[in-house]
Design a binder for these strands. Structure first.
Length: 241
DNA sequence: CGCCAGGCCGTGT
DNA sequence: ACACGGCATGGC
């Protein structure tokens, strides 16, 4: 029994998250998220992707793009019924159309339709305004803050929850805020907000990538890039990912 | 056919 | 505070 001859330092959860991040980054490389042409498109995509496969979202975005409607004023002027029909492919169209419209109204009334200006608002303020809109919950709010407004908001999703649980990094009952703090703790040494935002950006994108590849409800851990480094970096004992 | 996808809300315990 | 069903559509 092998008894490791060299002692492997016991890492705390923040260090383990950081190791997990580095492992994913090495395995997958830069993700270049969010896949969109503009902040407005990012916002629309963030709303449309709720509970929906991204391929379906692309069809909706394509509908809008073909009609040259991925512009703020044009999109806001679009009658709600037409918006519904154009975003139909991504599902939940009633709610999503209403949510999108409410969001465009917020940006119009509070920031003169300038996403730029919205992006300069302090993160907690912008987050509260987003969460006040029916249909925008914590994950969508943080996705908009991070990928459209370049704010250092860590996005927590089901994949991160699964990874954290399976690696013993969070209790089973951990809620959104707990998981967000946990993920952020990996970058506690980063004081620069812009640099922190870059880490948040990459981290969430990597989690989604590995999630799609291996962490579905029926996990495929056989070729998971986290598997090779589990023993050495994460906890020193075999754990499924 | 059944399950799932880059969630959120309202309701019932 | 948490669990659960509904919301809609399309890919596999």
């Amino acid at each position: 029994m092998p008894a490791r001859t060299t002692a492997i330092p016991q890492l705390n959860s923040a260090q383990r998250l950081r190791a997990l991040y580095e492992t994913l980054a090495a395995a997958y490389g830069p993700q270049h998220w969010w896949p969109s042409q503009s902040p407005l498109e990012t916002i629309v995509g963030a709303c449309l992707t709720q509970g929906t496969a991204w391929t379906a979202v692309e069809r909706s975005l394509s509908n809008l793009r073909q009609r040259n409607l991925l512009r703020f004023d044009a999109l806001r002027a679009l009658p709600i019924a037409e918006l519904r029909s154009l975003i139909r492919p991504s599902g939940f169209m009633q709610r999503k159309a209403a949510t999108l419209h409410a969001l465009l109204d917020l940006i119009h009334h509070e920031y003169g339709g300038s996403i730029e200006r919205f992006a300069r608002v302090p993160l907690p303020t912008a987050r509260a305004q987003l969460l006040a809109i029916s249909g925008i919950g914590p994950e969508t709010a943080d996705a908009i803050l991070l990928y459209a407004l370049n704010q250092p908001a860590m996005v927590v999703d089901e994949y991160l929850r699964r990874v954290a649980l399976r690696h013993g990094l969070a209790p089973a009952h951990a809620g959104y805020a707990t998981l967000q703090q946990l993920a952020l703790s990996a970058f506690a040494d980063e004081q620069n907000p812009a640099a922190l935002a870059d880490h948040c950006n990459e981290f969430h994108a990597l989690i989604v990538q590995i999630g799609k590849d291996h962490c579905r409800r029926t996990p495929d851990c056989a070729h998971c890039p986290l598997r090779a480094d589990l023993d050495t970096h994460l906890h020193g004992r075999p754990v499924s990912c």
